[in-house]
Design a protein around this nucleic acid. Sequence first.
RNA 1: UGACCCAUGGUGUAACGGUAGCACUACAGAUUUUGGUUCUGUCUGUCUAGGUUCGAAUCCUAGUGGGUCAACCA
Length: 556
Amino acid sequence: MAEERSLNFLEEIIEQHLKEGRYSQIITRFPPEPNGYLHIGHATSIYINFSLTQKYPGYTNLRFDDTNPETEETEYVESIKEDVRWLGFEWKYERYASDYFETLFEYALKLIDKGLAYVDDSTSEEIAAMKGTPTQPGVNSPYRDRSIEENRDLFLRMRNGEFPDGSKTLRAKIDMAHPNMIMRDPVLYRIKHVPHHRTGNKWCIYPLYDMAHGQCDSIERVTHSICTMEFVPHRELYDWLIEKLEIYPSKQYEFARRNLSYTVTSKRKLLQLVNEKHVSGWDDPRMPTISGMRRRGYTPESIRDFCARIGVGKRENLADMSLLEFCVREHLNKIALRRMVVTDPLKVVITNYDKEEEMVLSENNPEDPSSGMREVPFSSELYIEREDFMENPPKKFFRLAPGKMVRLKSAYIICCDEVIKDSRGNIIELRCHYIPESKSGSDTSGIHVKGTLHWVSCKHAVPVMIRWYDRLFVVENPAEEDDFIKYLNPESLKVIYPAYAEPSLKNATLNDKFQFLRKGYFVLDKESESDKLIFNLTVELKDKWDMIQKKQSDKH
RNA sequence: UGACCCAUGGUGUAACGGUAGCACUACAGAUUUUGGUUCUGUCUGUCUAGGUUCGAAUCCUAGUGGGUCAACCA
């Protein structure tokens, strides 16, 4: 049975175009400026552009919008490519706006020849002053009526480097009283004697966004140029330039940028987090960057699933971090290897266990029988989680308590007989006895217990470091606060060392995804060394007991 | 005091003039050798006012609310 999934507004437009025969294939592009690292907001844009051409005939280009040499670097180009690939998308052509500088220059000449562009000697302040305001029309520049010949001569000399930065610009001649301020003789070219990361010192004039983006789309025969809502006012200029230049009519469509709760995505704010060392870097596992999420242990599949689930629309939005976390858990549940790690150890001595040790078998992933089993060493001295024992347990506490029984996962049922305390009254050890016939897989004891605990054999335990991450901010929408830094979560990182891991974890690699039983999903961090493994918390497991506890304490 | 864009549960998105649906969240229950997973159920919504129509979330008008635009950034 074919499931009818409703189309988003972009898919509707495209299906209509395909049906009408307006296009036989569609071409989209992902057009980052190489001036920073990609984040979850870019991921949605990448997903939209690429998934459209996976669904419909056509392809997607990766185009670097590198028209401002002051901010752009090759380093960013490389990281952007790595991130797009990691997300699982393949572009057809890798292109750069700078590939088209010569063509763009000719386009500018064509505008001049048609009397549609002029060289302006005004300063940026003067241009701003003459622009008017949203409610008042602007006034014409005194240079607006230069002859075509003079404009041509001046523009050529701009390119030849005869004028200093800021002394002249090329402007479109449209209408200084236009209700759309973008259309009030927008600047098309500016002088910048700045080397470009790809063209070096070849150029000293560079096109602005409006003189480059739509033209590049057109050159690449992009059919659907998809961008965010803040470019809506630019569409009129986009169309105007294409029409006057008489080039291939690419069309622009806008969607509302997707925002994520409990984080920020503006480059300025992200940079501030890095510079002020609130995080360790651009790939800090708490960052919403692609590299941060990768290091956190998020999978490309889960990020793509998230993008698909939040969909695309035209209204302001703030998507729930819980949905992203849901997508991550859902994928990891299927693929993560189950392991046992005790983060806050309490020693348990099994008084009637007379063997030296034995290996018990435990599933690598109960969701995936093909993942097989592993051996876990069991012995008379074990660590369990301190919070899994209570001397005076409340109702609904299914874990260990004096005289109570629990199962040790994949091993035996034990019963707590005695609580050992130090001189200050702290619990330091539990004495228990085990039920020999209760061994997992061959249980003939007939005993049913409500709780199952994870555990690690003391003498086999591997001490590891755990970086327990939480949300970076304590408010849903930090971006709208006056000082977003004030709302950083002071507990966004807790370091736990040592935590005791079962021995198989010694062989962990950077690509492995783990579920530490009853704790959460974890991934090995790149800063690990062979004798000091570091695991990052990707996301916690859901914890109903946690909720019950909270509710009980709320009542009192 | 201009132009443009937008308005559906707590969140995100459907319904294309004809039963307001799905997912997440929250809550309740069943199952469970992970208080995980899985399964079942429950709560909550069309910004307001007019109009067109047999019938409006949908079309029209006005209002309200939110956003964008006055970079030689993209």
